[in-house]
Structure formats: C-alpha cells, structure tokens
C-alpha cells in the first residue's frame, strides 16, 4: 500500500542573520490511508516546519515530500495550490474562520474555492456542520460561537472538499482541556468512521495520546515512535484505585 504522504530525508534549514537554523533534520515519515498520527514536541522542535512541508506550504531545503507518490517539488505552484485546495484540509490553533461569514458560509466558501458543483455547495455545508454537532448553530457568526464550536466549524470546513489528508496544527491549543478532549474525540470519530487520514502536531502529550501513532520530535529529529492501542479503560482505573486502600 502506498502512503498518502511521505517524506524522504527531508530537511528545512532557515538562514537567519548569517546563521542557519536547522528546523527539520532528515526526517523520514510515511502516513498510510486511514491513519491518525500525532507529532508531539516542545516549541522549537520543528513540528510546525514539518507540518508546513507536509501541507505543501513550504519547500524543503533538501530531501523530498511525496503526496500520493507525487513529488511535491516537481509540481508547479498552481498544482500545489490545487493540491492544498482539494486534497488537504487544514485546522489551525486559532481557528482562522472568516469573521463576517456564518458557520455555514465559512464551510461553503471552502467548497466554492474547491470548485464544487452548485448542488454540492447547497447541501454539503449543513451536512458537515451536523456531522460536527453544530447543525443548530449553522447561521451563527464565529463571534457568537465558543472556541470549541469555532474549531468544529473549522473541522467541517477542512473536510468540505473531501481531502485525502487532514492536517491539524495544535487544534486544541486554544481550548480548555475538557473542550479539547471532546474535539479530539470528534477527530477520532471522523478518522474511524470515514477512514479520514489525520496528521496532527501538538506540544501536548494528552492530545497526542488520542492518535494511533505518536511520533516524538525534538531538535528537528524523530526521537521515538509509539503505536497506541486498546480501549481498556478498566485496567487504567483499576490500577489507579487499587493503589491506596
């Protein structure tokens, strides 16, 4: 099976005042269809740089990024723009909704930019908002929504054009832990039910532990990789409670 996205020995080096900063140092990474991968690292570990490379928003200094086996560096700017509009959905820490448009319109404009047919533009936004639990609030403006609700709109928007890859940059960074947990639960559901491939970067181990595979990034390198499994809450609770009495 070929990966949805793959990096081969990819480097990103920034020049700054004559000095160079190595943000991403030779990372090899492959994400398969249907995976939910978290990349966790402290600030400055290179996770945002890596996400920008995965999202075709930046060019690597060395090495290559392949999207569905297509090397990004061989694409024209127009092709990359097209890729970002159709094949990759983005979720940001700061939600990035258009403030003067309703939740519904924010989703619809993504469909418009993605070149969706009229029928789809009419039906799909509400479907998507219902999918993320916001059907009743579809006509609200972003400022009338809570942080968690705004991020749900952002998820609906990111899914508008049925992207092959969903990229999330600290999606719970601006949310309290309870709201964050329910948002991650939603991402998991979408990942499971629709086999939506998700790659999330975060500094938060708790957020990362919702994913099925966790890569630990430090100083631009992958320092560890863990596959998480199981749904056994019983064992965890039993361990906690059995300790003291």
């Amino acid at each position: 099976m070929e990966p949805i996205i793959e990096t081969k020995e990819v480097w990103k080096v920034y020049g700054m005042n004559g000095a160079s900063v190595e943000a991403v140092c030779g990372i090899d990474l492959a994400v398969q269809q249907g995976e939910f991968v978290a990349i966790v690292g402290p600030s400055g570990s290179g996770k945002s740089s890596l996400l920008h490379l995965l999202g075709a928003m930046d060019h690597p200094t060395r090495g290559e990024v392949l999207f569905g086996n297509q090397p990004l560096h061989k694409m024209s700017d127009a092709q990359r723009t097209d890729l970002r509009a159709h094949q990759i959905g983005f979720i940001f820490q700061t939600f990035n909704l258009l403030p003067n448009l309703s939740a519904l319109e924010n989703v619809e404009i993504a469909l418009r930019l993605g070149g969706a047919a009229k029928a789809e533009r009419q039906a799909r936004p509400l479907e998507l908002l219902e999918r993320v639990g916001l059907g009743p609030r579809a006509r609200h403006l972003p400022r009338q929504l809570s942080g968690g609700e705004r991020q749900r709109v952002a998820i609906a928007r990111a899914l508008a054009n049925r992207p092959r890859l969903l990229l999330a940059d600290e999606p719970t960074g601006n949310l309290d832990s309870k709201t964050g947990a329910s948002l991650l639960e939603l991402l998991r559901q979408i990942n499971r039910q629709d086999r939506q491939t998700v790659v999330m970067v975060t500094h938060d181990f708790r957020a990362a532990s919702h994913a099925d595979r966790v890569l630990v990034l430090r100083d631009g390198r992958i320092r560890g990789e863990t596959r998480l499994q199981g749904q056994d809450t019983h064992r965890a609770l039993g361990q906690l409670l059995a300790l003291e009495l």
Partner: peptide
C-alpha cells in the same frame, strides 16, 4: 518508558470520557 506512559495516558483519556458523571472519580482520573 514513554511508550508505556503514552499508553496509560490514552487509557486514562478514555476513562476520563467514561467517568464524567462521577465527579469524584473523574477528579482522580484528571
């Protein structure tokens, strides 16, 4: 060790979701 802690964290996340109706136990989990 990180792998073991992450796995525990995942299980506790699930426990946290399933224990919300019991405020005392959910405090312990958090």
């Amino acid at each position: 060790q990180r792998q073991a802690y992450l796995q525990q964290l995942r299980e506790l996340n699930l426990a946290s979701a399933s224990q919300q109706e019991d405020p005392l136990v959910s405090l312990l989990v958090e």
